[in-house]
Design a protein around this nucleic acid. Sequence first.
DNA 1: TATGAATGAGCTTTCATTCAT
DNA 2: TATGAATGAAAGCTCATTCAT
Lengths: 205, 205, 205, 205
Amino acid sequence: MQAQRRTGRPPSMVDGKTVPQRILAAALELFAEKGFESTSVQDVVVAAGVTKGAMYHYFSSKEDLLYEIYGRVLRMQKERLDNAVAQEGPVEDRLRAACADVVVTTANNLESTTIFFRSLHQMSAEKQQEVRRERRRYHETFRGLILEGQKAGVFRDDMSADLCVDYFFGSVHHLPMWLKPSGPMSVEEVGRSFADLFLGSLTSR
Amino acid sequence: MQAQRRTGRPPSMVDGKTVPQRILAAALELFAEKGFESTSVQDVVVAAGVTKGAMYHYFSSKEDLLYEIYGRVLRMQKERLDNAVAQEGPVEDRLRAACADVVVTTANNLESTTIFFRSLHQMSAEKQQEVRRERRRYHETFRGLILEGQKAGVFRDDMSADLCVDYFFGSVHHLPMWLKPSGPMSVEEVGRSFADLFLGSLTSR
Amino acid sequence: MQAQRRTGRPPSMVDGKTVPQRILAAALELFAEKGFESTSVQDVVVAAGVTKGAMYHYFSSKEDLLYEIYGRVLRMQKERLDNAVAQEGPVEDRLRAACADVVVTTANNLESTTIFFRSLHQMSAEKQQEVRRERRRYHETFRGLILEGQKAGVFRDDMSADLCVDYFFGSVHHLPMWLKPSGPMSVEEVGRSFADLFLGSLTSR
Amino acid sequence: MQAQRRTGRPPSMVDGKTVPQRILAAALELFAEKGFESTSVQDVVVAAGVTKGAMYHYFSSKEDLLYEIYGRVLRMQKERLDNAVAQEGPVEDRLRAACADVVVTTANNLESTTIFFRSLHQMSAEKQQEVRRERRRYHETFRGLILEGQKAGVFRDDMSADLCVDYFFGSVHHLPMWLKPSGPMSVEEVGRSFADLFLGSLTSR
DNA sequence: TATGAATGAGCTTTCATTCAT
DNA sequence: TATGAATGAAAGCTCATTCAT
């Protein structure tokens, strides 16, 4: 593994974070707080402590910032789901674990999720498609678990697996609308409860 | 049966809709399609076939358009829920009916719902509070049904009723993200399914 | 001829010139002096004594300003040429008059001509085509005179009429590069001299 | 026959051209195509395959690129004219040869000429003066030939020699506006024709 | 000799809103 | 009730140039 050639002025670091890292962190916070459209590039660079020129050195547009944020969320979620699915054990246990985990992950990244569902439509058609494709893969993996349980006879099979996925993820994606990390329930409790409610739906009757 | 004549210049009507009605209809469509911030007042008035001056005659600001849209949604939803709750019969039937109804109503007003959750943060803090207050009332009414069922012993009572409401309404509010009116299931079927899934959760174990 | 309906705020006038007139006059002067690209919209509106918003109320873009300037030049030149061609008399007299006239007209509109040949490439491909088409018509009309003289045997016919037109108009279009209205020769003298030189070319041998 | 070796790091060569040569060639092409102001330094260095730092190592500014281009054109034109003037023979033959030659040279360097007359105003006042001074010398040399012919009685002397020079060079400098190297006439033919037309003017009556 | 980071001023354009009628 | 003119602040983005190595 070759160390990459280093020439030119070295990148500036603050608190061990590079310029693009600081910019993305600032964008994440501001987009979640005020919305993508109501946040100006000026706002972002001031919050990140960099100049506008520096931002455009690393990102090609304001939309690109959004796209990068999306990429991170998608990568993380997919990785965790793949992980949960690959575990050993009965399908209901694996689904329960996956459900609880996605709730916890979402709860720990409320800002990203807020932005995700609020600002998707601000992206160019092409990038939206890319994101949707990735979401679809996620959806399919999850749906696979449900189908497996239905075939195994542990989940009711008079209900479309697709619908069940949308039903559950609706609940998850709306967490930012009401969940306060400082609220009465820990995020793990919320995760267990959501998993319980959903499994209850699938195993009822 | 003709509405009684008024004196003075009659309001300009097109397709039986007054100027403010046309403006709101255009705003609803555009805000849902492109987002509140990405829709200019110019866009709205062009789509409504009126001039900018006319819009500012009827509405005090662009935000006011959003507020009016919110008001209509809230009034409609509250009315329907109150109606469902006031029915006779066992609590599980009344809850099931309310669940199915809110799904159908939401599905028939996808544009409003899209705007509702995407653009709430664009409103002034005061108006946001007003909307949240109204939402809270709605939430409480619904929660009342669940509590009633828990006390009656027909619903599991080891789960916070608040959480259950948020869980279910998350699913409902995300309908615009995936539901196509032309899809394989009718909105009534989706309503019944969602109600079934939710009731399954509450009555499991 | 119906007086057009007047509603709304009346347009502001300064020195009997409307806002768009003042803007175009300022743009003409500045584009000629500093070049199109080096002149900012800010420069133009300050010189015209209007606001940027007013400019964009009347013109769709900075390029549109250029386009309007081009339109005026083209219309004027075409009109004068058609006029000269339509006169009575021998072809050499008509050509001589047309040559002298285009020199005088160009000399009296040095700014427009400067902009014309310096900034054509800044316009969108479509508008450039439109301008070139108009130029081509002008060229053809002029060429018609030469062909007529060649057929009549008064002009040498061993030289492409096209080439002759380009030859002469090159001289005319470069007038802004050296001609000073306050120079030793009047513009009419220059016109007569150019016409004489060109006619000398055509009748030599 | 290899050029003698130098010590130190050899300049990076591509296609036998040094870095500054590649930069100037790229600038020439781009300035002619899109105009000086519409070409960014970025565009130039990308086209030349070098970095921005490298460009600023060899040239002090973007304007400096333009200045270098001007210098090359001026040097070449002056050299060729001096050459033509220094020939033996009657003045009309020498003028005819000089006229034809400047047309051919211009036609073979359309890009340079395009830039020359389009972008002169983009240079600093001092450099503009320098260029104009050089142009003046060129003009004077050419004018000398005409005066010589007028004194010798072979050219009409009722026409200012200055005007004649401007008249002819206008035609030459506008060649880039219409001449296509792939057109029906070879550049040599155009040169002969232009020379013929101009000599016809001078010897008429 | 050459690099990639970073600057900061300036650019065109958009937009919600107000004005005068 | 409604118009078209006009405002002025702010937006996203570009760019020639300089910096630190």
